[in-house]
Design a protein around this nucleic acid. Structure first.
Lengths: 213, 213
DNA sequence: GTTTACATGTAATCCGTTACATGATTGA
DNA sequence: TCAATCATGTAACGGATTACATGTAAAC
């Protein structure tokens, strides 16, 4: 239980497997056919990563020998894997995550559905918003240096970053509002169900999510 | 001259060194203090990459032994380096570059100032725009799958990607318009200078650009 | 005079890419 | 039956991260 740091890909795998047990090829299909495509769907990335997670006890592999074909490993989350995933989902968005790309902030948000409470998710979006706002301030600071003639391309490139961050900032506010709204409207038609379940859905919902996210 | 494929970092180094000769620490400063920060400023990335580029003949290192301190290597572009950089700058934006992050599309645009003609730059922005538009179409296709209850987080995450791509698309149009406008207005006050030079500026402009981009 | 920041690297580790390998299933 | 696709991996290579090493200049 050396608690070594995991890569973004490995957390993505934990999250996917946590929705429903999956084989390596299932993961490949998700990465190849959904907006999660910025993860490589190459087997050379997926299979070793799954094996690594199994070796450190975060995933557990069940050998499926039905069909008497080549046995396939079906991976599912262990208790330690649940803990590692939940701990990661509770991390705030950092400046480094924003700058270095990799998509960790939105990945955490995607996987948080059903694993975090609505309050925790809103708190997470708050950290997201703050991080983007702070980074935007940095970018605005650069504009003074690039205005004026002689640096048109620097000026224009900077504005691409600024526009992107502005759009990201607006999204965090919009997403928070949508989540609050969804909590309100779905409580009315079915007041007997718990708030968590309203958003979370059942296992079949997980299946859909893993295919369409 | 085996023409091995270069990484985005290596092209960024070619571009920076092409603006003005630099040492490894100069590069570190650029990555640490400008919006180019999504490249790692760690010496373990920069120094080996510079050395690699020198070994394959794209950079040339001049040993500066003034000050009699530890000698520092000042890198500059070779003719082969210029060719490799220019060839890369002429590549259109691809779907893979957009999806896998890495910032190659905007990096090429940033480095294109002064190296490509205005017509070539506009053509490049055209490929950028087409690639983003095509990717946006893909993303819109996913919205149908995520609408409806039970997949709120997938739906919201998808919209983050859509908003980001829409913002990027608008930027390509705006940048093209700005470049056309700049070409027009700067020709009037100084009709004697060439069009290229109007945008490009001199060496001191390169220095500014490398610090502020 | 000692610490802090500047400056230039090297070494180990490790993840991801690319290419290869192989067997089962399906369609022509 | 032959090709193509599905499905499950392995192996080699290489680049990036992290940590370490070291020496100089400035600040206090």
């Amino acid at each position: 239980m050396a608690e070594r740091k995991l890569t973004t890909l490995e957390y993505a795998l934990l999250g996917l497997v946590g929705m429903s047990p999956l084989t390596g090829y299932d993961v490949h299909k998700v990465f190849a056919t959904t907006p999660l495509a910025h993860f490589s769907s190459s087997p050379g990335a997926i299979y070793p990563a799954l094996r690594r997670l199994a070796q450190i006890g975060l995933l557990e592999a069940r050998l499926d020998t039905s069909k008497e074909a080549r046995p396939r490993r079906v991976f599912s989350l262990t208790a330690a894997g649940e803990r590692a995933l939940d701990a990661w989902l509770h991390q705030p968005v950092t400046r480094e995550e924003l700058i270095r790309g990799g998509g960790a902030p939105v990945l955490r948000f995607s996987l948080a559905g059903g694993r975090l409470s609505r309050e925790e998710i809103l708190a997470y979006l708050e950290t997201y918003q703050k991080a983007v706002a702070a980074y935007l301030k940095e970018l605005y600071g650069y504009t003074e240096l690039t205005t004026g003639p002689g640096n048109l391309h620097g000026h224009l490139s900077l504005h691409l970053g600024i526009r992107g961050s502005e759009s990201e900032l607006e999204w965090t506010r919009w997403a928070a509002a949508e989540i609050k709204r969804a909590g309100r409207v779905s409580r009315k038609p079915s007041p007997s169900r718990s708030k968590r379940k309203d958003i979370q859905g059942g296992p079949e919902c997980h299946k859909i999510r893993s295919e369409t996210l």
